[in-house]
């Protein structure tokens, strides 16, 4: 049972990690807590639904409950959600930045934007639930006492690939390096001739794309609804702060820890307190390391 919980925790954690990377970017590069980030997950999932409705989820291939069409839909949704994130920045956050607003203004603008984005989903797709595919898989025993769905194994693998790709991008590409420079010190980055607005645009597009993929993964297990992203918001923030903002590894480890804490807590203290668990772990970590696990002392 413990092994099963560990496996479940890692699965949940992988999805949280993908979303938490965007939150972490927001905190470190854009310098504010973007409460609208969870809505990008929702939008990504629903945009993929549009393509799936058009092309179908594809015939189940091998052990999976969906075909290549689903992956194509995910990529398209990631592109569009990246664009949506940039659009929101253009309409709201860039204007606030140019006005020299206090970061708290951006936080509450994000909160307002989240309300709007979430309920536009309700207006377009309705309150009800949607499915990419109604296939129900039976879990296979991957290790003694550990059962996983083939879809979940695929998601886990893909999440790892995405994170590695992102790491390479941040380490070697020009924009990636500029983003890291921005995270370290915006004024220094500007002085070095980095085009700040350009970096910010790419940050939004990347965050949106990653959020969309996390959203599609969420939708695959098993359904979509307008509050799907919102219900994950706090886990995302807990993960990104737990790891220490600004480091990719931090967000990923933070996501995994949150996933594990939720799943294991059900055994240790009962499921009534499950949703508080990520925070209690967070408090414990912050008590000993106020800057987060991988954060640098300020």
């Amino acid at each position: 049972m413990l092994a099963q919980s560990l496996a479940d925790g890692i699965l949940t954690g992988a999805i949280i990690a993908l979303g938490a990377i965007g939150v972490s970017f927001g905190l470190q590069i854009l310098k504010f807590a973007n409460f609208a980030h969870s809505e990008l997950l929702t939008w990504g999932a629903y945009l993929a639904l549009v393509f799936v409705a058009f092309a179908g989820p594809g015939t189940p291939t091998a052990e999976l409950s969906f075909g290549w069409q689903m992956m194509a839909a995910m990529l398209l949704a990631a592109l569009l959600t990246g664009g949506l994130a940039w659009l929101v920045d253009l309409l709201i956050f860039r204007r606030l930045r140019r006005m020299g607003s206090h970061p708290m203004s951006l936080v509450f603008a994000a909160f307002g934007a989240a309300l709007v984005m979430r309920h536009v989903v309700v207006l377009i797709w309705g309150h009800g639930t949607h499915f990419y595919t109604r296939e129900l898989q039976i879990a296979i025993e991957v290790l003694p006492g550990v059962r996983m769905l083939p879809d979940q194994i695929f998601i886990l693998g893909l999440a790892i690939v995405i994170v590695v790709a992102l790491h390479l991008y941040l380490t070697y590409s020009r924009t990636g390096m500029a983003m890291r420079a921005m995270a370290e010190s915006p004024s220094l980055a500007r002085a070095c001739g980095i085009e700040v607005e350009n970096v910010i645009r790419w940050t939004w597009i990347l965050s949106g794309g990653l959020a969309a993929m996390a959203g599609v993964f969420l939708g695959l297990t098993p359904q979509l609804h307008p509050e799907m992203g919102f219900s994950l918001l706090l886990a995302l923030f807990a993960a990104s702060i737990l790891g220490g903002t600004g480091s990719l590894a931090g967000a990923v480890i933070g996501g995994l820890l949150v996933g594990l804490a939720e799943n294991l807590s059900v055994f240790l203290i009962g499921s009534g307190y499950k949703t508080a668990m990520p925070f209690l772990v967070l408090l414990l970590v912050l008590f000993f390391r106020p800057q987060g696990l991988f954060g640098e002392k300020s």
Partner: peptide, 13 residues
């Protein structure tokens, strides 16, 4: 608790 993305932990328990 309602509105969670996954209930694998509860189910496993």
């Amino acid at each position: 608790t309602d509105n969670q993305p996954s209930y694998r932990a509860e189910v496993t328990k």
